[in-house]
Write a protein that binds this DNA or RNA. Sequence first.
RNA 1: GGUCCCGUCGUCCAGCGGUCUAGGACGCCGGCCUUUCAAGCCGGAAACGCGGGUUCGAAUCCCGUCGGGACUGCCA
Length: 473
Amino acid sequence: MTVRVRMAPSPTGVLHVGTARAALFNWLYARHNDGVFVVRIDDTDLERSTKEYEEEILDAITWLGLDWDEGPRVGGPHGTYRQSDRFDRYREVAHQLVESGHAYFDDRSSEELDELRQRAVAEGKNPAHYIRRPERERTEGAIRLSIPQDAPIVFDDLVRGTVSFEPEDVDDFVILRSDGTPTYHLASTVDDVDYEITHVARGEDILPSTPKHIVLTRAMSFTEPVYAHLPLLFGTDGKKLSKRHGATALSEYREAGFLPEAIFNYLANLGWSLDGETTIFTREQAIAAFDLADVSRHPATFDPEKLTWMNGEYIRAMDTARFEETVRPWIEKGLGREVTDEEWERFRHVSALVQERTRLLPEAAEITRFLFVDIDAYDPQAWEKVMTKDGVATVLDRVLEALDSVGSWDHAAIEEELRKLPEQLGMGASKVFQPVRVAVTGTSVSPPLFESMAALGREKTLERIRRARGELG
RNA sequence: GGUCCCGUCGUCCAGCGGUCUAGGACGCCGGCCUUUCAAGCCGGAAACGCGGGUUCGAAUCCCGUCGGGACUGCCA
C-alpha cells in the first residue's frame, strides 16, 4: 500500500517552525517510502483564514525545499485540497452520522454546557464527563458525535507506542456548528478518510484529540490511519514554542539570513538523528534513513545558536560563485541600493575570505561595507583602542611611504612591503596593521587586511590612510 | 482539578540488559595558529531526577515518587 501523508496548515497565520518541522517529517516519511505527500489547507475557521496566509505558507514550505505531490498549486485527484470548498461534504457526513445514530443535535447553551463541565470538575472528574447526549431529543443546533462508553479507545502510536483513553474522559464533541460549518475535527477526519491518508504525523499537542478522530473515523465505517505524535518544539523556557520566544515564523529566519538547507538540516535533527553521530547531513541522507518510528518522544528546545553555527557550516560549504550570488541581494539590501559592476569586482576580491567568516548572510554585508561606501565615522571603540596609542602617526607615515613602493596593486605586493615594517619599527605586527585596518575599513574587524586593501584599490586606500593620519594631528 | 504525554551533559542527538571509566554536536573554558575577526587543530569541564524492585548484571525492564509539558471551546 502506498504511504500517503499530509501537511494540513491552517492559513490563520504565518508558518510556524513547529509546523514546518512536522511537515518536514511527513515529507521525509513520504520520500523514504516512495509515498505521496499531500498539502491540504485546513481553513474551516473562516473568520481567521486568509488567502494571503495560505500563499505565504505555501511559499515558505517551497522555500524549505518541501515539494508536494497533491494539493494547492499542483492539483490532484481530490479537488482543491481546501476545506472551505468541501463544506457540503462535511455537512453530508455529519447528517449521515445523525441518521446512523452516531451523532445528535444539541442546542444547549454554552452556560448549560459550562455548568456540566464545572460539575464534573467539582466531582474530581474530567470536564468531558457529562458532555453527553441529553435526555430530550433535539432537531436543531450543533451536531455532536456520541462517544461509545463501552470500551477504552486504544491505538498504537508510531512514536509513543500504545496509547489508551477511557471513553468517559472524551466528551461528545461538536462536529458541525449550529451555523452549519464543520469543526476542525470533522473536516480533518473526513479529509483523512477521503484522501486515503495512511499515516498522520502531527504535533503532540493534538494527542488528546486523537481518540475523537478515531471514534469519528470508525463511525464512518473506516479504519483510522496510523498515528505518530511528534514531540513539541520548546522555547528556551521549556514551554511550547510561541511568539513570545522571539522568532517562530519560518519567514523570520529566512529574513535573518538563514539558508533553507541549514534550517532543513537543523529541524531534521530536532527529535530525530541520522545515526547519533552525524550532525550535518544532506536531504538525501535524511530521506534514506528516516523513519517515524525513530523519532524521539521528548520535546526539543529550539536553539538559535546551534542553527546559526549550522548555517555557517552551510555557507562555508558552498562554492564561492554560489556564495556571491546568494549574498549579493543581502549586500544591496544593507546598502539600500544596487551595487555597480565595478563595486562588485571589488567585493569578489575578498568574497572567499568573507564567506569563511559569514554565519548569517547579513554579516557579509556588514563586514564589507567599507568597500561600497566612504567612511563617514570611525567605530568609536576601535578608534579608542587602536588609534589613540603612541606611535600610531609614525606607523601610518611609514605605511604610506612603504605603499609608495608597491608596483602592481595586489595583495601579495602590498603584503611584501608592509611586512617589513614591524621589524623596522620594532613593533608587533598587530600594532602596525591594526591602525591601517581602522584607517581603511573604519573599524577593527574586517576581512584580512592586505586583500581588503587590494580590493579597495590604491587610490581609495591611500586616501583613507592619509585622512586617518590627518585626524591624528 | 481531570486526562494524556515526557524525564541522558546548559542545549540537540546517540544508547534499546553486559563492550558505559555513558558517545557525537552546539555552547562554554584553556591552548595552538594568527594582521583583526572568523575558520581550523588540540585539550578540558559538563548528564543517566529520586526511591524501590526484577536480574549474576540496569541509563536500558517493572513499580512508585518527584518534576516538566500538552490538552481540557460550537479555535485549529
